[in-house]
């Protein structure tokens, strides 16, 4: 597979065209992230159950297929977790995601853990695109940190 085909795997194009989790509810807490170099934007919300576990991701955004697919894949990942995720699980997932994306193509994302989002690992070879893939994950991280700060 060429680098370009690796970056734009069919599953990424599919997610960017038919994204999961699009839509925000009035008044819910969101994190807005903007990639100032290209104008990619994601506004994302983490929805929690009564026990405080994150069970759903909602978002809106615009931008390149990588940033939009990434948000969709994060939403899909939560869809596949029937009982949601605790904040520390989500945090470690985000950290791992970041480590792989910053690895300049030397590390890969584990499909077991990341599901469709594992396909985003191809972006790690394109330094300029890492930020696009990270955008929704940074939004999620921001919300988790805010949640923790409130205690």
């Amino acid at each position: 597979m060429s680098g370009l085909d690796q970056l734009y795997q069919q599953i990424i194009l599919d997610h960017s065209k038919r994204p999961h989790g699009v839509g925000l509810e009035a008044g819910e807490e969101t994190s807005h992230q903007l990639n100032t170099t290209c104008g990619d934007e994601v506004t994302l919300a983490l929805r929690r159950d009564d026990a405080g576990r994150v069970v759903e991701v909602g978002w809106t955004g615009q931008g390149c297929s990588i940033s939009q697919a990434s948000a969709s894949m994060l939403a899909a990942l939560l869809e596949e977790e029937p009982t949601g995720m605790a904040d520390d699980e989500l945090t470690s997932l985000i950290e791992e995601f970041r480590t792989v994306l910053r690895s300049r193509g030397t590390l890969e994302l584990d499909e077991e853990r990341f599901g469709d989002a594992a396909a985003l690992g191809g972006a790690s070879r394109y330094v300029a695109r890492v930020k696009c893939a990270m955008l929704p994950w940074v939004a999620a991280e921001d919300l988790v940190q805010r949640h923790a700060a409130r205690g």
Binding site: S2, L4, C38, G39, D40, C64, S65, I66, R129
Partner: peptide
């Protein structure tokens, strides 16, 4: 139908340096 950033990547892959963004 294609975001500028994605379009630019196709050119970069062919060794063609162009600007994408606003």
């Amino acid at each position: 139908g294609v975001h500028a950033h994605d379009a630019g990547q196709v050119l970069d892959d062919l060794g063609i340096a162009v600007r994408v963004g606003h």
